[in-house]
Computed example of a mutant assay.
Amino acid sequence: MHPTLLGPDLSVLYFFNSVLASPFLDFLMPLLTFGGTQAFWVILCLLLYLLGGEDEREAAFMALTALVLGFFLSEALKMVIARPRPYEVIGWVRHATVAGGYSMPSGHAVAAFAGFISLYFRLGRPWFFIILASLVGISRIYLGLHYPSDVLAGAVLGVLCAFTALKIDERVKCFGLCRFDRLQQN
């Protein structure tokens, strides 16, 4: 890692992982981190699709599209960057669990931002979804599993995946409507 990035990264990591440490946050943060797991998103999207209306079904489709894109892109980037997790290389980092794989970008942050921003595009309430995604990212830092720059990179990648899913959704709609219009003209 470039030395100029290491200082701020370590300072923010120390703040969230050590300074803020408390029994309440030790309980809360593992719960929040669940919002970045594949299981959470599969269940949420399934519920939205089965129990929701047209907007919720569309939001579920977009979120799943963004999540699939984000998963493959983040896994590829992790293999290229190959950054070890903070608790593997810094002795003072507290961690309650051990995570497999590399650290950069945070896959949980990718999933949270890809999913929650996709939901925002179809369901509104931007601050609600941005706060939820941000809390997932903060939980990863608090738990000592990622550097802040890992979470930031994951957030950017997740937002890009959500925008890509939005464009895919628009193309799918246009393709369906354009085909329907052509069939009616014949």
Rank of each mutant, 00 (worst) to 15 (best):
S22E: 00
V68D: 01
A112P: 04
V110D: 04
G36K: 06
M79Y: 08
M79P: 05
L13Q: 12
I43Y: 10
L69R: 06
L13C: 06
L20F: 09
P8R: 09
L6W: 09
L31V: 14
M104F: 15
A99N: 03
F72T: 02
L5R: 06
G100S: 10
L67C: 10
L77T: 08
F113P: 01
A111M: 11
F116P: 03
A39H: 02
L6C: 03
P30W: 10
E56F: 05
D55H: 12
V110C: 03
L77M: 08
E54S: 15
Y87R: 01
V12Q: 00
C45I: 00
A60V: 07
L73Y: 12
R57Q: 14
A39T: 07
L5P: 03
L25H: 13
V19Y: 10
L28V: 13
F16G: 01
A111E: 02
Y87I: 03
L13G: 11
T33H: 07
A112T: 08
A76P: 02
F24G: 09
Q38R: 08
T97D: 04
S11W: 10
V110R: 05
T65D: 09
V98N: 13
F16R: 00
M104Q: 06
P8L: 12
I90Y: 15
R94L: 10
A82K: 00
V110P: 06
S74R: 07
W92D: 02
P86F: 14
V42G: 08
E58N: 12
L10N: 11
E56K: 01
G101V: 13
I43M: 12
H95R: 14
T37L: 10
M104P: 00
Q38E: 09
Y102N: 11
P84R: 05
F27S: 13
T4E: 12
A99G: 07
S11Y: 05
L28D: 02
M79Q: 12
L67G: 15
A82P: 00
F34S: 08
V80L: 15
L69A: 11
P30D: 07
S18I: 02
R94A: 09
F24W: 15
R83I: 04
P3H: 15
N17T: 02
G35K: 11
F72C: 06
V42W: 11
G53F: 08
L73V: 15
D9V: 13
V89E: 03
P30M: 04
L64P: 01
L13W: 04
A99Y: 01
L31E: 11
L44F: 14
D55N: 10
W92I: 00
L32E: 05
G36W: 09
L69Y: 04
P8V: 07
G7P: 04
G53Q: 07
P8A: 07
R57H: 09
P3Q: 14
